[in-house]
């Protein structure tokens, strides 16, 4: 299913059809559970897009439709007290990690009941109770945070691991490479999960990487590397489970390259078509993990979608009538 170190062959399984690979572990979520997680992300994102258009949502909304299988599979392999840092495109991870939907949406919509009481917004979500050490507005900015949390876990010997997720573009940030090297050097219980969606904003891989073989680049640091079909939550889960086991055993970090695709624009104002062909987009839409799971689950899938839609809608209604944040001057100057 996945390889360790260096090789750059595409995933063995073609990216299609039945998602079940390998031997399911006892704690592997069911197809229904994976679908519920993924469809929640899709519905939340569509609702937020609507709220962005209506003016209820401020700022940029980075979109992740098509990539739902990566957070769904990855976070299912983590415990509540494992650490996570993610990106501006990280709301799926935050939800899959178990953060409260209402508190997340309240933060994204700038309410006092939000995770950060409206001070952070969508790009700066923190929830210590779920090990969430921040989504980030800086490409590669949270990689050191995760590596440091992994260092803390190693020093304390508490068995926790730290997952950090980033895109293919982040591989070109020096900070990332400093952290890859140190994670290998110190054998940190860290998992570097790269969502290779073939584009960094509007720039394709081969116009920004001298060597587009990402596992080869990172493998040279002495990190275990592996590739996985990022549109298959089960494959992602199993690959992550291996990486988590390796980390917990003290065998060091893993770099996972998950092949996936954003079937929508980079953010709400990008139709996503100027730099990609319609054929390419259509081809990846046919591999959309949410749609595939819904088809696989039949009536049950339709019912889950309807149920989640209703749930998200009711929470958004509640959030929109929640109080606006209040300015807390006691936060200034680090007095608290």
């Amino acid at each position: 299913m996945s390889r360790v170190n260096g090789e750059n062959a595409p995933p063995e399984q073609p990216i299609q059809g039945q998602p079940i690979q390998g031997q399911p572990t006892p704690d592997q979520p069911t197809a229904e559970q994976f679908f519920r997680t993924m469809v929640t992300m899709e519905i939340v994102e569509k609702s937020l897009t609507r709220l962005s258009q209506s003016g209820d949502l401020r700022g940029s909304l980075h979109l992740a439709q098509g990539q739902e299988a990566v957070p769904a599979g990855a976070c299912a392999a983590l415990n509540k007290d494992d650490y996570l840092t993610a990106t501006y495109r990280g709301h799926g991870y935050v939800l899959a990690k178990g953060c409260d939907l209402e508190a997340v949406l309240a933060e994204v919509l700038g309410r006092s009941t939000g995770l950060c009481h409206g001070y952070g917004g969508k790009m700066h979500l923190f929830d210590a109770s779920h090990g969430l050490l921040g989504t980030n507005g800086i490409v590669a900015g949270g990689i050191g945070t995760a590596a440091g949390a992994a260092l803390a876990a190693k020093i304390d010997g508490n068995g926790r691991v730290a997952l950090t997720v980033f895109g293919d573009g982040a591989i070109n940030q020096g900070h990332a490479h400093e952290c890859f090297n140190m994670a290998a050097l110190y054998k940190l219980p860290a998992i570097f999960l790269c969502e290779n969606n073939l584009y960094a904003e509007m720039t394709p891989l081969d116009r920004s990487h001298g060597n587009t073989n990402l596992t080869e680049r990172i493998g040279s640091y002495g990190i275990a590397t592996t590739q996985v079909d990022g549109n298959d939550p089960v494959a992602v889960f199993q690959t992550m489970t291996e990486a988590v086991a390796r980390a917990r055993k003290g065998e060091g970090p893993t770099f996972i390259e998950a092949h996936t695709y954003r079937t929508i624009g980079h953010y709400q104002a990008d139709p996503g078509t100027a730099y990609r062909t319609q054929e390419e987009i259509d081809e990846w839409r046919s591999k959309n993990p949410v749609a595939r799971y819904q088809a696989m689950l039949g009536d049950k899938g339709d019912a889950i979608r309807a149920e989640v839609e209703e749930h998200v809608e009711s929470i958004i209604k509640k959030v929109l009538s929640s109080p606006l944040p209040t300015w807390d001057s006691a936060l200034v100057g680090g007095a608290k």
């Binding site: 949390a149 260092l151 020093i155 050097l185």
Partner: peptide, 25 residues
Amino acid sequence: NRVIDTPISESGFIGMALGAALAGK
């Protein structure tokens, strides 16, 4: 475990100090 030599990676180890602080150190 308490006195750690780092590579010449200021961005990396300062960032890791943040992560360690958030993880209770």
